[in-house]
């Protein structure tokens, strides 16, 4: 199934400037895999070298942070929107 993925400006160079793209998958992890297949430049921005969620990235499935709903295993539906946001912190 295809879901919409919204990207912050910092990631848009990897999608040719597109702010919203679509990718297929039944979980966030599968959507990410498909997304990376379509836009390889996103790989190091989304996932760590061992396939985990990048710690400088916040991922929302609709209004919910996927860290509290199974992370990459979170199930997605056709009408869902995944929003990627940079983690913003400092001192």
């Amino acid at each position: 199934m295809s879901v919409a993925v919204r990207l912050p400006a910092i990631l848009r160079p990897a999608t040719g400037g597109e702010a919203t793209v679509h990718a297929d998958g039944a979980t966030v992890g599968e959507v990410f895999d498909d997304l990376i297949g379509r836009h390889p430049g996103l790989k190091d921005q989304l996932l760590t070298s061992d396939g985990g969620l990048h710690r400088h990235l916040n991922v929302f499935l609709n209004d919910d942070d996927i860290r509290y709903m199974g992370k990459l295993e979170a199930k997605v539906g056709e009408t869902d929107t995944i929003t990627l946001m940079p983690a913003v912190a400092g001192g």
């Binding site: 912050p8 916040n58 929302f60 209004d63 942070d65 929003t83 946001m85 983690a87 913003v88 912190a89």
Partner: peptide
């Protein structure tokens, strides 16, 4: 008082 982390949900709302 030394560091900050923008609450992710607040950032989503702001966006």
């Amino acid at each position: 008082s030394r560091v900050y982390t923008v609450e992710p949900r607040d950032m989503l709302r702001a966006d």
